[in-house]
Write a protein that binds this DNA or RNA. Structure first.
Lengths: 66, 66
DNA sequence: ACACTGTGTAATATATATTTTACTTAATGT
DNA sequence: ACATTAAGTAAAATATATATTACACAGTGT
């Protein structure tokens, strides 16, 4: 239920730290978001999505649907 | 550039206060998000989108594209 | 055995989202 | 004219996202 973000990051061959730097965040923040332990801000979500060539829905919209 | 959220809310015939109550937020918070003066949390965005029968992309993804 | 890289995690500090309370104004209805 | 409703806005308080620093650990390469 968690790791669409992690999948997308790994697909891009980014480490947590590399992604963090590109979106002006910290490794820890990225790690916690991947673990589902954070409720990130919209701007950060958008920055991450753009950096990974995904959309908000791709990364953060409900899995439960379908 | 701002008001996909406002449009969706009005379409649903919700007042700011009604929407706020349904997503466990305040009228002020909704108002500021509509004005683009806030960087809301992902959870709030998701709650709003669900309540308005939209997706994250519908409401919060870039206008600038195209 | 030792260095190095990627990640998990925790404590404290800082920035900022969100609430609470309150005042204002435009619009609408009586 | 008055009351009511929806919305704009502001100050202070509170909650929480995020940064900073630091330590631990597994995996990999030397």
């Amino acid at each position: 239920m968690v790791n669409k973000l992690k999948s997308a990051r790994v697909q891009k061959d980014y480490t947590q730290e590399q992604l963090a730097k590109r979106v002006n965040a910290t490794r820890q923040t990225i790690g916690l978001i991947e673990k589902g332990k954070y409720n990130p801000s919209l701007n950060l979500c958008i920055a991450i999505a753009k950096e990974l060539d995904k959309t908000l829905d791709d990364l953060f919209w409900e899995d439960e649907l379908s």
